[in-house]
């Protein structure tokens, strides 16, 4: 993100320049650029945090609305992704709580029936399904730290700040998350091997 100054008047200024070049659109250029640049990442982050495919667009909407409304408070000197990740994490937490989400409700089998978007490499698609199934073995707080650090390469201090948790807690979640993930991968791999042998 560029270090543009906050624009407190943005939400109330529909007449602001319209980066999306479409009448009636209200994003200012900076947020519009953020939206375009980060949408895919938000989408996959939500999926990695355990959202059902069918809910991804709803949740991406929620993340972007919250981001839009909080955008003036976003510290431009900080990287954008951890900030957005914090929002996505919160949105998914609410989503899971709201739906009385349980691991069983979102089984790997259910995911496996979801078409792999624009996916030609079945092996990779299978690997990804396995990753998501293994991630399901992690509690959400560990899962979030694991996803941000392992998949997005977010620096742990930046992530701790974005999630509002102590640094040591963040490291601890990462350690536990790695351990559980590796165990889950091993276990799923064994099951896989058992089915195919």
């Amino acid at each position: 993100m560029t270090a543009a100054p906050p624009s407190p008047s943005r939400p109330a200024s529909p007449g602001a320049p319209d980066a999306l070049a479409s009448p009636g659109r209200r994003f200012d250029p900076e947020f519009a650029a953020l939206y375009r640049a980060e949408f895919d990442w938000v989408f996959r982050t939500l999926r990695r945090l355990g959202a059902r495919d069918a809910d991804l667009e709803d949740l991406a909407h929620d993340v972007m609305v919250v981001a839009y409304r909080a955008f003036d408070a976003y510290d431009r000197s900080r990287p954008i992704k951890p900030w957005l990740f914090g929002i996505a994490f919160r949105v998914v937490s609410d989503y899971r709580r709201r739906a009385r989400f349980s691991r069983e409700e979102l089984s790997a089998d259910e995911r496996a029936t979801t078409p792999a978007h624009q996916e030609s490499d079945l092996e990779r698609a299978h690997a990804r399904a396995l990753v998501l199934a293994a991630l399901d073995a992690l509690p959400l707080d560990q899962r979030a730290v694991f996803v941000a650090v392992e998949l997005d390469e977010t620096p742990v201090p930046e992530l701790a700040r974005a999630l509002g948790i102590p640094l040591n807690t963040c490291y601890s979640r990462l350690r536990l998350g790695r351990k559980r993930f590796a165990e889950a991968v091993t276990s799923l791999h064994r099951e896989d091997a058992g089915r195919t042998s």
């Binding site: 209200r26 990804r128 998501l132």
Partner: peptide
Amino acid sequence: LLDAERAIPPAPSGALERVLSRVEATIA
């Protein structure tokens, strides 16, 4: 496995625009 997950393809076609219209409707 994580390398495969990192290579995830983009969001489904049209998702960006669909969500965009909804977000705009909400914030408007």
